[in-house]
Simulated scan of single mutants.
Amino acid sequence: MVVRQRAVVATLPNLIRSLRKECPKPNQAVLPSLRRAFSLYDQINLIDNVPEDQLRFQRYTDTGFTVNGVDYEGSLLCIGNLLMSWAPKKFSEITPDSLSIFQTVRPIPEILILGCGRYIEPVVPELRHFIRSTGMKLEVLDSRNAASTYNILNEEGRIVAAAFLPHGVSS
């Protein structure tokens, strides 16, 4: 038994060396970082073959948006697939009066996405109460992420509304 163990111990290093020579070397190429491989917000439009009459935000700038290939300056209000200019130029100008259209719109959108400009802003209780009184939920985001969220929900066929200040707006 002792002789057998010595033989194994003596041949084991040679066996390991020969196996290392026969095995191909792994590819030493550096793998790309996955950190920036995909970001939901880098590409606003995620789904192709969306109907032509459906609004899609394709780009945003500091002063406006590109929707279905058309450039729009200033603030925008979207209800379903209806797009219109919107008066507020800064977040403090967003009031129940500026959103009063939602008292008459039917069907009532299930959610209102509020794009605050460059940064997310706190919504005053009066405005939150008004939005709840219409039957909508409220999602407050910076305008970049708000446009992406609007696209996704609209492409899913959900009844969604959005109010966007240009991305360059900050308090």
Rank of each mutant, 00 (worst) to 15 (best):
M1L: 09
M1H: 13
V3H: 12
R4L: 15
V8Q: 04
N14Q: 15
L15R: 14
R17E: 13
S18H: 07
L19P: 14
L19S: 11
P26E: 09
P26T: 05
N27H: 05
R35Y: 14
S39I: 00
I47L: 14
P51G: 03
D53A: 07
F57I: 06
T61Q: 05
F65G: 09
N68C: 12
V70L: 15
Y72K: 07
G74V: 09
S75W: 05
L77H: 06
I79T: 08
G80Y: 08
L83Q: 04
S85T: 10
K89R: 11
K89E: 14
K90H: 04
K90D: 01
S92L: 00
E93H: 06
I94Q: 00
T95L: 08
P96A: 06
P96E: 03
S98L: 09
L99W: 07
L99F: 04
S100P: 15
I101H: 12
R106G: 07
P109E: 03
I111T: 10
L114N: 05
L114D: 05
C116A: 09
R118P: 08
I120C: 12
I120N: 08
I120T: 14
I120V: 15
E121K: 08
V123S: 04
P125I: 10
R128S: 15
H129F: 12
F130C: 03
S133D: 11
G135W: 05
G135M: 03
L138H: 05
E139R: 00
S143N: 01
Y150H: 05
Y150K: 02
L153N: 12
N154E: 04
R158F: 02
I159P: 05
A161D: 01
P166L: 00
S170K: 00
